[in-house]
Design a protein around this nucleic acid. Structure first.
Lengths: 125, 125
DNA sequence: GGCTTGTATCGATGTTCGTCTATGCAACCT
DNA sequence: AGGTTGCATAGACGAACATCGATACAAGCC
């Protein structure tokens, strides 16, 4: 249940000279990959799920705790969790009866640095 | 043509103690607002458009330069630019015959800091 | 073994989205 | 004024998506 997510976000762990939205025009394939990740964030339910998971101190959240937090059916929540996992933002493991999800902070960090504007870059607005 | 974008991304310009995905669970309304912005980034064409605009040194790009870069009709590009503008990520101005678009770096910066993981926060993956 | 509970998958359905063609509007040029 | 070019808007259409109920699977309990 644990190795289905895409490996879309680059590998430079130091986060120094990474790929950036505002550095050079994205090529088509890369844009498609990254758009998939942003699309996973582009739903209020998934954003709340990810926030609930990522802000958890222990790092892990049981599905049984996530589902009742929404006015949605259990299959719907399960579906959203699957999409977040396929986007590489979270992962999960079954332990006995329950399934636990946790965030993948490196994925979030890479996304954040991708959006970071290098230096001056406009200064409009 | 220039005051249609939403004001969804918060106001703290110092970027220090800002709202963060992994700090506390998002409430429903805020999640809906932010999801709208991520949804705007969740399309390959829009991501390439934004990248082309944000990476431009002068800061501005003429639509007449964006449209021919895609295998899409001119109205389709215009539609995507409109969505990016409504998300508060870019803005535009008509100057004579041509319309120029530029990125709003503060919006990108706020998104980036929103995704930034505070400290340890898991260390899994 | 059978029952119960937690979670995932399947199939259907209404809505949203990306794209197109056709058209409208704004600015330039004779 | 009339024609041309650049860009936006309107309406239509197929594909993708969010949601549901029904069902399957996994694990614990009796």
């Amino acid at each position: 249940m644990s190795k289905q997510e895409l490996e879309v976000l680059g590998q430079d762990t130091d986060g120094a000279c990474c790929e950036r939205l505002a550095s050079a025009p994205l090529d088509e394939d890369r844009a498609t990959e990254l758009a998939g990740v942003f699309k996973a964030l582009g739903d209020p339910v998934r954003l709340r799920l990810l926030s609930m998971i990522a802000s958890r101190d222990g790092g892990e959240v049981c599905v049984c705790e996530l589902t009742p937090a929404f006015d949605l059916s259990q299959p719907t929540i399960s579906h959203h969790l699957k999409l977040l996992r396929q986007a590489g933002l979270i992962d999960c493991e079954r332990r006995g009866t329950w399934v636990y999800y946790w965030a993948l902070p490196e994925a979030l960090a890479r996304l954040a640095s991708f959006l970071t504007v290098p230096q001056s870059a406009g200064a409009n607005a």
